[in-house]
Each structure stands twice: as C-alpha cells, then as structure tokens.
C-alpha cells in the first residue's frame, strides 16, 4: 500500500474531486434485487402456513435442545476421530514403505468411494455380519468380547461411520498441508539433529496447519449437517427430535424451520471460530496480521471521528 499518507500539514496536494461516471446498470440491478428481496420477505411474513409462533414455541423445547446436544456431541466426536485418523493416514500415505502407503490409499479409496449414508446403515447392521466381536491380538487371545448388538448400538454406529468416513477426507487435507511445506524446512530441521518425528511434529505440521485449517473448518461445518443422516438409524439428534415431534402434531414446516435455525446458529459460531483459528496459524506467514472485523469496525469509527486514514491490511492477507 503506497497511498500518500494523510499528514495534515498545509499545502499538501489537493485531492481529486471529479464527477463520477454514471452507472445505470448498477441501479437497475440493485432495483431488481431489492424487489426480489421484498417479495420473498413479504411472502415469508404473510404466509400463515409458516406458523412462526410455532417456531418460537419449539425453539427452546427441551426435546429439541436435547437433540441439539446429541448433534453437537456427534459432530465433535466424529471430527476428533476424523482428524486423528486423517493425520495418521496422511503420514502413512507419505511413508516410503509401499505396504503402509498402499494400505492408506486403499482405506481412502474405500471410504471416499461409498456414500456415507450407506456406511451409517452398514455399521448399524454390523451385527448381521459379525454377531460376536472380540478385541485382542489377531489370531490370539481376546481381551474384550461381546455381542455386537450390545457393543455397537445406534450412537456408536453413527460415531464410527461418521468418524471413519471423515478420516478419509481429512487424510487428503492433511497430506496436502504437509506437501505444501517447503522441503528446505525438513532439511534445516534434520541438519540441526532433529529426528523425522520431531521434524514432523514441531516444524512441518505447525506450518501445514495454515493450509489444513480452512478446509477442516469446511469439513466441520459439513459434518454438523451430515450428522442429520443418523436420524435414519434412530439416533436422537436434532433432526430426529424434530421428526418425532411433527410425527405427532403434524407441524412439519415450522419444526423443520426450528431445526434449520439451530443448524444455522451452530454453523455461524463455527465460522467465527474458524476465522480466529486461521489467524492464529497464519502468524509468521504475513508481514502484518489483517485486522479482525471488530478492529476494522473500531477503525472505521475512529476514522469518522478524527478523519485519519486507517490501514486495514486485508489486501495483504495471503
């Protein structure tokens, strides 16, 4: 940014004040958009079948809040599994051992290649395939054994399906992040006597985060909505709670709106979280941190008051 600084002393060059070019196209476009917005708002407000009072009535209903809790729980656990698995699979994929990288490739190929809804139902019916589950040394003694039906109930099946599926997607995201870090970083770390694991943990992964975080935020937002699929195996999530209520009172539309409002609230919170996470991991990558929206608002306010030029370096951010 090489704008002339507003120094305020006498005799500085006068600002150009020209008559702006007329842009009728913009006015027409704005008018069309405005008319459409008014039409939509009018229809939403005037159509009694939206039953907004019902929405308000159920927004904080106990059953719905409980469903919301299950949805959030599913999202957090499934994403945690996905991230851990993703890092593991990404590192395996970059391994020099062809068997290890091949196994990772096969996993990703399978879990990305089948619909997540199918996977959810599949895990739910796993007891049909393996009625008894033993956990222990392969072909050796088992430490935990039990009936698949008791070990894997609906919630476990949902977590497994969502988490294992997410792992495949996260693996590709993490791998892209690792590859994006310059090889010179590893050279430097190795030359200082760091082992491969230390280099990965302390040098490469922290810098890969800048590339990994934005798509991971996307994945989390996507996961929050994907959890609604688990209603098919009767996990009492947000959508399932809503369905259970409208199955009784037939207020289908207002209850779906209630659920949508909660989904929107959660994704909005995630947006904000992602923004600050990106900022945190972007440090060192740009000369100057871009101002946060809050700082920008404050800057604009102080600009109004003092007439001083406020620098938002948003243009320099990546």
């Amino acid at each position: 940014m090489s704008s002339v600084r507003d120094t305020g002393y006498e005799g500085r060059p006068e600002e150009i004040r020209a008559v702006p070019v007329r842009r009728p196209g913009r006015w027409i476009a704005a008018a069309i958009v405005l008319v459409l917005v008014v039409a939509v708002v009018h229809s939403i407000a005037s159509n009694p079948r939206f039953e907004w009072h019902v929405v308000g009535e159920y927004l904080f209903d106990e059953r719905i809040l409980e469903g919301l809790r299950v949805t959030l729980e599913l999202t957090v656990i499934a994403m945690a599994i996905g991230v851990v698995l993703g890092v593991l699979l990404a590192v395996m994929r970059l391994s020099l051992n062809p068997l290890v990288s091949g196994a990772s490739w096969l996993y990703i190929w399978f879990f990305r290649g089948t619909p997540v809804l199918v996977q959810i139902i599949f895990w739910y019916f796993i007891s049909a395939l393996y009625p008894k589950i033993d956990i222990g040394i392969p072909f050796g003694p088992a430490f935990i054994h039990g009936n698949a039906n008791t070990l894997i109930h609906a919630f476990t099946a949902a977590v497994l399906a969502l988490g294992l599926n997410e792992g495949a997607y996260m693996a590709e995201i993490v791998r892209a992040g690792i590859i994006s870090v310059d090889e010179g970083q590893s050279d430097a770390a190795h030359s200082l006597g760091m082992t491969r694991l230390q280099t990965l943990r302390r040098i490469v992964l922290p810098q890969a985060m800048r590339v990994i975080i934005p798509p991971t935020g996307n994945e989390t937002i996507s996961m929050l909505k994907t959890t609604s699929l688990v209603s098919v195996i009767a996990v009492p999530d947000l959508l399932y709670a809503v369905q259970a209520i409208y199955a009784v009172n037939f207020k289908t539309i207002p209850l779906l709106i209630t659920a949508s409002i909660w989904y929107l609230v959660c994704t909005s919170v995630l947006y904000v979280g992602q923004y600050y996470l990106e900022r945190h991991y972007g440090r060192g990558a740009t000369r100057e941190q871009a101002a946060t929206p809050l700082q920008r608002v404050r800057g604009i306010l102080s600009f109004r008051r003092t007439g001083e030029h406020f620098r938002t370096s948003s243009g320099e951010h990546r």
Binding site: D187, A188, A189, H190, G193
Partner: peptide, 29 residues
C-alpha cells in the same frame, strides 16, 4: 541425527522456521 547435531548447516534460502520468531528459531534445536 546425533551426528548431524554436531555439524551446522546454512542454506541458500535460509530455511528459517516460518512459524517461529528469530529467538524461537535459535532455541528450538
């Protein structure tokens, strides 16, 4: 790794760790 730790190396493109300050770069190893 132990042997490399006894040999310092300086690169054409510096290869400083981008997520660390100058001081953190020096104390890391």
């Amino acid at each position: 790794a132990r042997k490399r730790a006894e040999i310092g190396m300086v690169f054409q493109h510096f290869n400083l760790f981008g997520h660390m300050t100058a001081l953190e770069n020096v104390i890391s190893a």
